[in-house]
């Protein structure tokens, strides 16, 4: 007989629903496969025969922090909210109790790798290598002039890295860049946006993170986004 004690039962009943990443502005779109561009929502391609809530967690936004004549072509910005809840639900999803997962000081990660870079050994990524990888060269808005050495030793999901490059956005969000093993390829590089609670983004709206990632002028990059499950 499968006997389940109360604690096990609660554990089994716990459902961590989607880590909600919600853009808190008018330009942010909802969850359901939605994207927003210039303040409007754009429904993502629906998938035939598949529940659309698979896309929960993906949110869409655009940074409009530059005027048209000064808009950089080298950077892409993302911001949003992250929340995690644990529910004690019944079979019809009525919640008896809800716990909030504290994600503060964890990170949203972006990489061009469709899987994650090696996490066994995270290292400092140097500016020269990064500028070379992204074909930036010398310019006022290259990586060297954006991500600068820090004195911090942040911990990325169990891996501490001393003095990684970082950048603080205008609204005060701190982002880092590190690399798995080495900086030999783009797919080893990991961009990490710190998650905060109660912060206000560049638009004056609540946001848990802002993340700046470079865009290769010779061939735009596709970034994949990850978050550590707690």
């Amino acid at each position: 007989m499968n006997r389940i004690n109360v604690n096990a039962l609660l554990s089994a009943a716990i459902l961590l629903l989607a880590l909600l990443l919600i853009a808190g502005t008018a330009s942010a779109a909802g969850f359901q496969n939605a994207t927003g561009v210039n303040g409007t929502s754009e429904t993502d391609a629906s998938v035939i025969g598949y529940s659309s809530n698979q896309s929960a967690g993906g949110y869409v936004t655009q940074i409009d922090i530059y005027t048209a004549n000064t808009q950089t072509q080298k950077w892409q910005g993302y911001y949003g909210n992250v929340s995690g809840n644990i529910y004690l639900n019944d079979s019809t999803d009525n919640s008896m109790y809800t716990w909030v997962v504290n994600l503060t000081n964890t990170f949203v990660y972006a990489t061009t790798n469709s899987t994650l870079p090696s996490w066994s050994s995270l290292v400092v990524a140097d500016n020269a290598s990064l500028d070379s990888l992204w074909n930036f060269g010398a310019s006022s808005d290259n990586i060297t002039n954006t991500y600068v050495p820090s004195a911090a030793t942040p911990n990325f999901a169990g891996r501490s890295v001393a003095n990684p490059l970082n950048v603080t956005t205008a609204a005060g969000y701190l982002d880092y860049v590190v690399a798995g093993v080495d900086v030999s390829t783009k797919t080893n590089v990991l961009w990490a946006g710190t998650i905060y609670s109660g912060m206000t983004n560049f638009k004056g709206n609540p946001a848990d993170y802002e993340l700046l990632v470079p865009v290769d002028p010779t061939g735009p990059d596709v970034y994949y986004f990850y978050i550590e499950l707690l």
Binding site: T35, V47, G58, Q62, D221, E228
Partner: peptide
Amino acid sequence: TLFLKFGQGFGDGGSSEIKALDMFP
């Protein structure tokens, strides 16, 4: 240590977006 892969974004210099992963049922 578990990571959740939750989205993708196309970077083209300020007009890209994070969207759902491409999944085929």
